[in-house]
Design a protein around this nucleic acid. Structure first.
Lengths: 335, 335
DNA sequence: TTGAAAGCGATACCAT
DNA sequence: ATGGTATCGCTTTCAA
């Protein structure tokens, strides 16, 4: 077995109370001499404090839980990276939960995190259902939403304003001289990343007097590469005169590029494409993809910081709207 | 505060011992009647067992630690996905640690995981230094290496045979009629993913009587897209007659494709390219990348399974060589 | 400056 | 079938 504080105490000829004080560098409570002896004993025995026991008595586990659909997505892995960074910097650990894995495990995960007594929760990029909210509320630990939000339940969130960002993307296309612009979107029933982006897109067209009665928006179920390909094909069938398209995700945009390539239509010469996210593949596309960047890594960091802020102050936490920006590469041509 | 087992006991008019028995469905030790009463009390109070307290007495935290360099890489996130899957299925949690994040934190992480008393460790895709090994050994918990190995320290590992896989890739090119073949590799000092792939490549050439005195291997520091671009340029400068190239990673391969595109040389018509990994971008490349696939997700799963096997049996664990296979897409032309 | 002892929330052994 | 209690490894009064 691992040596315990008792062993150290015995070895140094002091009480466990004293060892504890030294371990926690409690202000005074021991002399320099004993401190040395104890430190020596710790060293010699290779003693490592037991965080579990500590957690029990302090009611603090120094651990937070992070809930993600698909851990392996490029968006989420960037978020995770940011989260992990500041979390560990602050001496805590992160337990990851992949909610989309198999069936509706989200509730099970929440239960698990509750039993493990995590000190906080980061809930990422999935719709927060009433059910989830109740479970979270029951846990009575600070929670922040990452890259998602809920108007019904007021939990603080960290995300970019999807509608604004989409508006920016469409406006960018318009500035570049495009007049017939189409969109490849995710699910319009998705109130987080679906509808808002469509609305932002349409708002930009409207504000520039470009909104026709039948706006060319092609919606898929998700945001995948494959769906990007399909929707691009449809869009192209519907109207040959479209000179630019806004894709609701970089994956979709890359799919659109691939689709265009197959149909022998050149990007950006025949048609311009702008994406959304700015994940790694966007610079690897041919041509490199112009896109609306979300500062994913930083969003993860900010979310974690906010969570720990709440943990420290006990206050409610202010949502943070992260800035988005256009990253110009080579998939959009000026008309 | 959360209700404790004591509260439940009081509420149901039984002792905590009985509640505990019911909680753990210990074979008998209580009547159906009391069981009902206790269950009701639990329900009513919203009691959730405290895993920390359990962990203290059982010396079992139901948690494992996973060490990764760059959590956000596409290779690692696939591995993580597989790991998370089976780990949670088995009722455990995973704490992720991003070792490359800032400086040499690996040792700190190990220390942290030790204090948190994780029951096992998955160490991924980084060289296992003596230092790390010692720290791990001190923890006395089962450990398995994922996508890496160590010949010095015998810890079980789960990975594909890099040399074999590289051999397969080169052979594939040769079968397709290529005779002048180049390679874009990672760091030859990397004994895991660097050298073995180079050696496998060369072995294939040799076995087919194609090994010239100056084999065209261009080595970078890492396996990045950018380095793929650079190395392709160099390779092209050195010899215009090369008809096919084997890239040591998909990212590099895609970089090579981009580089080729810029130099106006067509893939696969002017030059064929085969990658390594089969991550998501390989199907999204233009043209879609033919590559040697590592079953990443499954490797994560197998590694976790192996770890839990060791946990259960207390035995030493057998390394697993995962199968690789060629995924044919469109970046290689038959000559 | 130091130590004894009371918990933290569970489990499990020993009685009854 | 049940309850009392020691115990897990540690922190933190309270006394000395």
């Amino acid at each position: 077995m691992n040596p315990t504080i008792k062993d150290v105490a015995k070895h140094a000829n002091v009480s466990i109370a004293t060892v504890s004080r030294i371990l926690n560098s409690t202000s005074a409570g021991y002399s320099e001499g004993t401190k040395k002896r104890v430190k020596a004993a710790i060293e010699e025995l290779g003693y490592k404090p037991n965080a579990v026991a500590r957690g029990l008595i302090n009611n603090k586990t120094q651990t937070i839980g992070v809930l993600f659909p698909n851990v392996s997505g490029m968006v989420t892995s960037e978020l995770l990276h940011g989260i992990e960074n500041v979390t560990h910097q602050l001496g805590h650990s992160v337990i990851v939960c992949n909610t989309a894995s198999q069936g509706k495990r989200t509730l099970d995960y929440l239960q698990l995190l509750n039993e493990k007594r995590v000190e906080g929760i980061l809930f990422a990029s999935e719709m927060l259902t009433d059910e989830y909210y109740e479970a979270i509320k029951d846990m009575k630990v600070p929670t922040v939403l990452v890259s998602t939000k809920s108007q019904k339940h007021l939990l603080p969130y960290v995300k970019v304003d999807d509608q604004d960002a989409a508006y920016t993307a469409a406006s960018y296309l318009i500035e570049k001289g495009h007049r017939k612009i189409g969109m490849i979107s995710g699910n319009p029933d998705d109130m987080i990343a679906g509808l808002p982006r469509i609305e932002g897109f349409q708002a930009a067209l409207r504000d520039h007097g470009l909104l026709t009665e039948k706006p060319s928006v092609f919606s898929a179920e998700g945001f995948s590469y494959k769906e990007g390909m399909e929707m691009f094909k449809k869009l192209r069938q519907e109207g040959e005169d479209i000179t630019a398209v806004f894709a609701a995700s970089d994956e979709m945009a890359v799919g659109a590029i691939a689709s265009a390539y197959k149909m022998n239509i050149a990007v950006p010469n025949d048609i311009s494409i702008i994406g959304y996210d700015n994940i790694k593949i966007s610079e690897m596309a041919i041509p490199p993809l112009t896109t609306v960047a979300q500062p994913l890594r930083e969003m993860g960091e900010k979310a974690a910081e906010l969570l720990f802020e709440m943990l420290k102050t006990g206050e409610d936490g202010q949502s943070i709207i992260m800035p988005h920006r256009i990253v110009e590469r080579e998939s959009v041509k000026e008309l």
